[in-house]
C-alpha cells in the first residue's frame, strides 16, 4: 500500500501563548514545537500498522521551513519510510492544501491521511480542501479504519452515535481519537531515522484566501469565589441568583 501522511507542526500543548507586534503575530519565542498530536498519535501510527500488515510505503509530508526537519525526523523514527518537505511557510489552510494536492496528484497514493485539525489554528479544513482539489472521496473524523482488499471500512464519530462507512481506495481520511494508540520512538528507530530519505521539494505558487488581522487573549476570570464545603446551599444560591445557570 502506498500511504501518505500529512503532518503539521504545532506549539507544544503546554506552550504559553503570546503575541507580538501589537497582537498581529504569534510570538514563537521560547515555544517548543511538536508534531500535531492528531497526526502523530492517530494518522501516522495507523498508517504504519497498515503497512506492517499489508506491506508498502509510508511517506510523511510537511509543508514548512527547514526548522521542521526535527519534527519530520521524529515521524521517521516512529516508523515512516521516507519524508517530503515542501519548502515554504504555511500561511493558511488553502495555501497548504494547494501544495499538498499538487504534490500528491500524480503519485497514486491509496490513502492520504490528515489529522482532524491542528491544535494551533484549529482549522480542520486542509483535508477537505485536498479531497476536493483531487476529486477523491473524503471520510472526515474517522475513529477506526480497516482495509479489506481495495475497500476500506471506517467508523466516524457523529453526534449520538457512530456512522459506519465503506469506500474504495484511493481516498482521503481525517483521523480522530480511537484510530490508534500513540507509539514512542525507540533508540533503533531514532538511529534509523537519520538514514531515511528526506526530500525537499520547491513549492508551487501560493494562494491565501484569508488573512489574520489580529489576535486577542481571553478575558481573565475575575477570580474564583470559594464556597465553604459545609455551606453548599450557598453554592446553589450563587449558581441560581448570580450565575443564573440553574
Amino acid at each position: 500500500m502506498n500511504l501518505l501522511v500529512c503532518i503539521s507542526k504545532t506549539p507544544d500543548t503546554t506552550a504559553r501563548i503570546a503575541f507580538k507586534d501589537d497582537f498581529t503575530k504569534f510570538d514563537e519565542g521560547g515555544v517548543q514545537f511538536i508534531m500535531n498530536p492528531f497526526d502523530e498519535f492517530y494518522s501516522l501510527v495507523r498508517a504504519i500498522e497498515l503497512k506492517e500488515k499489508f506491506g508498502g510505503t509510508v511517506t510523511v509530508l510537511n509543508v514548512g521551513e527547514p526548522a521542521n526537519d526535527i519534527v519530520i525526523r521524529k515521524a521517521l523514527a516512529i516508523g515512516a519510510d521516507k519524508a517530503v518537505r515542501i519548502n515554504t511557510s504555511p500561511t493558511s489552510a488553502f495555501a497548504v492544501a494547494k501544495q499538498i494536492a499538487e504534490y500528491a496528484k500524480d503519485k497514486s497514493f491509496d490513502i492520504i491521511f490528515f489529522g482532524k485539525e491542528t491544535i494551533d489554528y484549529n482549522g480542520g479544513e486542509v483535508s477537505g480542501m485536498v479531497a476536493a482539489m483531487l476529486d477523491l472521496p473524503f471520510v472526515n473524523l474517522a475513529s477506526h479504519l480497516e482495509v479489506d482488499g481495495t475497500t476500506a471500512k471506517l467508523n466516524r464519530d457523529i453526534e449520538g452515535g457512530v456512522e459506519k462507512v465503506e469506500v474504495e481506495m484511493p481516498f482521503i481520511v481525517s483521523t480522530a481519537k480511537g484510530m490508534a494508540e500513540q507509539r514512542i520512538p525507540n533508540m533503533r528507530g531514532i538511529m534509523m531515522a537519520k538514514r531515511k530519505p528526506l526530500e525537499v521539494v520547491e513549492p508551487v505558487d501560493k494562494e491565501d484566501r484569508v488573512e489574520i488581522l489580529k489576535y486577542e487573549l481571553p478575558k481573565a476570570k475575575s477570580g474564583v469565589k470559594l464556597v465553604d464545603p459545609d455551606n453548599i446551599d450557598e453554592l446553589v444560591r450563587l449558581l441560581h441568583e448570580e450565575a443564573k445557570v440553574i
Binding site: 480542520g124 477537505g128 472526515n140
Partner: peptide, 23 residues
Amino acid sequence: FNSSGKPLVGMLSYMLDASSVTG
C-alpha cells in the same frame, strides 16, 4: 460546527472558489 458540517467547509471552499473559516 458538527460531524455533518465540519467536513463541508474545506470542500466547499475549493468548490465554490470561496474563503473559509471554521468555528
